[in-house]
């Protein structure tokens, strides 16, 4: 009985805390995306003419986001019957956008980021035994500062 009560309490805390965090995070992501819209971030490997480049350097951004208890339970249930793991979608989406934003922040002062790559890794220690379940997204690219603006 105590087990069940603890479960329901964790579930409720997980749900409300997770929702609040997610909501706040998305608000901040949208704001910062708007603010950094002026910096082109592309996946193309095409570089500007070499003689136009004043400076080029590696920029990276990484973000680790954890699931909440509610999402974990949702995922366990979803695991049984299969289908879209909607509980994890926002998680990955947030991590990816946050990582790119951080990378852009590191590229402040440059004119473009080329060859942007995004990689992901799951960080977890036996999530089935109430361990940690989180995802890391790592974004990197080459920031280029031009002698004169494009």
């Amino acid at each position: 009985m105590l087990d069940l009560a603890l479960f329901l309490i964790l579930l409720t805390i997980g749900y409300f805390a997770g929702r609040a965090t997610e909501h706040r995070h998305y608000k901040s992501i949208l704001l910062r995306e708007k603010a950094s819209l002026h910096l082109p971030t592309v996946t193309s490997k095409m570089l500007p003419e070499v003689d136009q480049i004043a400076k080029s350097f590696l920029v990276t951004g990484s973000c680790v986001i954890s699931i909440d208890y509610f999402k974990r339970i949702l995922a366990v249930l979803r695991n049984i019957i299969g289908g879209r793991m909607t509980a994890y979608e926002t998680l990955i989406d947030r991590a990816r956008r946050e990582a790119i934003l951080r990378m852009k922040y590191e590229a402040l002062g440059s004119h473009i980021i080329v060859n942007t790559r995004v990689e992901t890794a799951s960080i977890f220690s036996s999530a089935s035994q109430n361990g940690i379940g989180s995802v890391e997204v790592f974004a990197y690219g080459t920031a280029i500062k031009l002698k004169k603006k494009l």
Partner: peptide
């Protein structure tokens, strides 16, 4: 030409309310 684009609609996340999904999953299972 590079066109800056702000995400307005997010195709990568579903709009299903998590509580609804939870109810369907627990109820069904």
């Amino acid at each position: 030409k590079y066109t800056p684009k702000l995400l307005t609609k997010n195709v990568n996340t579903s709009t299903t309310h998590p509580l609804k999904e939870f109810a369907i999953l627990t109820g069904g299972i």
